[in-house]
Amino acid sequence: MELSRGGRNTKIHAAVDALVNPVRLFLTPDNIHDCTAAIELLSGVKLSETTVLADKAYGTLDIQTYIESQHATFCIPPKSNATDPWACDFYHYKERHVVECFFNRLKPFRGIATRYDKRSRNFLSFAFLASAMIWLK
């Protein structure tokens, strides 16, 4: 884990199904941009004949080509500075709230909300445990 300006921070990247159940979790240092971890996150998920909903941060050409190579479609809005913006179905994009709902379900677990663990391995292990508790509900 790298040190950022704020100290030891990490980001949890999550792939979530339509029922707010976590499918895959991935941890990166805080100073790494979201789009650099997206292909590695999606590589562990079966994408064929699905639609990937993601935030603008994941709207790069590499991610789009990876999703299309997996025989899936994407619903990612283009960034405001995109030179060649693509069409986005914003009615379908509203369903992306399930990812936010998943992170809201993680917040009651104090170990995740306050990041007590110094080692990223222990932090990710507790995130997996919390995810299992979410699956069991």
Results as ranks from 00 to 15, higher is better:
Y91F: 06
K118W: 00
A18E: 13
A18D: 12
Y116K: 01
E68I: 01
R121P: 01
I39G: 14
K118D: 00
P22S: 05
R110D: 02
N81T: 04
L27R: 05
L27E: 06
S48E: 15
N122H: 07
V52C: 06
R121H: 09
Y58Q: 03
L53Y: 07
I12K: 06
N31Q: 04
T51V: 15
F103T: 05
C101I: 14
A127H: 11
C35I: 07
C88Q: 07
H71E: 12
G111F: 10
H97A: 08
R105D: 07
S131D: 10
S80G: 00
Y116N: 02
L53N: 06
R8F: 07
K118V: 00
R110N: 07
K11P: 04
V52R: 13
L53E: 04
P29A: 04
S43N: 15
P85D: 04
V16G: 13
L61V: 04
N9K: 12
Q64H: 06
P78D: 01
D62F: 01
A72T: 06
Q70G: 09
V23A: 08
V20N: 13
T51F: 15
Y93V: 03
F109S: 04
K107F: 00
I39E: 14
G6I: 00
D17G: 11
Y66A: 07
F123T: 01
I63L: 02
N104R: 06
N122W: 05
R5S: 08
G44H: 14
R119M: 02
G111L: 06
V20F: 08
R119G: 03
P85S: 02
F128I: 14
A54M: 11
P77I: 02
S4N: 07
R96K: 09
N81F: 01
F26D: 14
S125K: 15
S125G: 13
G59F: 01
M133R: 11
F26C: 12
M1Y: 04
L19H: 15
I134Y: 10
T60Q: 10
K46P: 12
M133K: 12
H33D: 08
A37E: 02
L41C: 09
N31S: 05
A113C: 04
W135E: 06
A130N: 12
L25I: 12
P77L: 01
E2F: 01
V45I: 13
S131T: 11
R105A: 06
I12M: 14
A113V: 01
N104H: 10
L129T: 14
L129V: 15
Y116L: 03
F109C: 04
S69Q: 15
V52K: 12
L42N: 11
Y58R: 06
E40F: 09
V16H: 13
I112H: 10
D117I: 00
E68K: 07
N104A: 08
W135C: 03
K107G: 00
K79M: 00
T83F: 10
A14T: 14
I134E: 09
A14Q: 13
W86D: 03
